[in-house]
């Protein structure tokens, strides 16, 4: 793993230089770097991460889209996927992660489970209009809209680790919540395991508690530094502590604190 990590670092730094020179050329390099980073991300690196869809086994879908906060706050959207052999169709997938926060969602999900003979469903299909998982400051929640496994309707807002009775040898958990060794929490909106060989995870978000929120910055304190070196800013986004509006009088809008993040704008 260290080798892969080093490689990903190099690709990443290369992508920076390319992007500075020419944004479009760097796009694929940056994407490559992101993909390499995903499996390399270890517990002590990125505590906040999310993916919309993943499956291992006969039905295999690498986590898509996957983001973590190795580079600060990040978000990815995928407009549409039709996985191999048309087993899966999803209209919109989104994942985002930042300090103490992660969220993932899918819309228009249709997953053909017919390769899983052990599942024992008369109608081997997992479908949902929308699925979301949110992890905020170490607290997880999930929500489903018009979701069905076969003919079984799934709860809109199931309590954590709600099992669903299904025929065959499958285990189906809604709002699956797992405490990780590094103290972070993973919430997965729909988690299916069949016969120990197949797993399917729909909308998963992992987060730790946000870093300590610093005292309110002095309004006169300029947030930027002067030499273009941005290495010394805490970039904390643990909360918004700007104007207090205890009555009809509203306060002055706060000077923003820059937050460590990555977004490819149109250079």
């Amino acid at each position: 793993m260290p080798g892969l990590f080093l490689l990903s670092r190099r690709v990443n730094s290369l992508s920076k230089r390319r992007l500075a020179a020419c944004g479009v050329a760097a796009a694929s390099a940056a994407l490559t770097a992101g993909m390499l980073f995903a499996p390399a991300a270890s517990a002590d690196e990125a505590q906040n991460s999310a993916f919309a869809l993943s499956a291992t086994g006969l039905i295999k879908i690498d986590p898509v889209p996957y983001v973590d906060d190795t580079n600060g706050a990040a978000e990815k959207s995928v407009a549409e996927i039709g996985a191999e052999q048309q087993l899966a169709h999803v209209e919109l997938l989104n994942a985002r992660a930042g300090d103490g926060f992660a969220k993932s969602s899918v819309a228009g999900l249709s997953l053909d489970l017919s390769p899983l003979a052990d599942l024992g469903l008369s109608k081997p299909l997992l479908s949902a209009e929308a699925v979301e998982a949110t992890c905020d400051n170490g607290v997880g929640s999930s929500s489903l809209a018009n979701a069905k496994l076969g003919d079984i309707p799934l709860d809109v807002a199931a309590p954590p680790n709600t099992g669903v009775e299904v025929p065959g040898v499958a285990s189906v958990l809604l709002n699956k919540q797992t405490q990780n060794d590094d103290g972070s929490l993973t919430v997965t909106a729909i988690s299916i395991e069949v016969n120990g060989l197949q797993t399917i995870d729909i909308a998963s978000a992992t987060c730790a508690e946000a870093a300590e929120v610093p005292e309110k910055p002095e309004p006169t304190d300029p947030p930027g530094d002067d030499n273009g070196d941005n290495g010394d800013n805490d970039g904390d986004n643990g909360g918004n502590d700007g104007g207090d509006n205890g009555g009809s009088q509203v306060g002055a809008a706060p000077v923003p604190t820059p937050v460590k993040a990555h977004l490819d704008v149109t250079g």
Binding site: L19, A20, A73, D225, N233, K260, A261, H262, L263
Partner: peptide, 24 residues
């Protein structure tokens, strides 16, 4: 937003706007 950009190094801070490119 006010972004302390961690990957692209052309600017220490990037201020993304609500608008998007019509051509990209």
């Amino acid at each position: 937003a006010s972004i302390e950009e961690t990957v692209n190094d052309y600017s220490p801070i990037v201020l993304p706007l609500s608008f998007h490119s019509d051509s990209h």
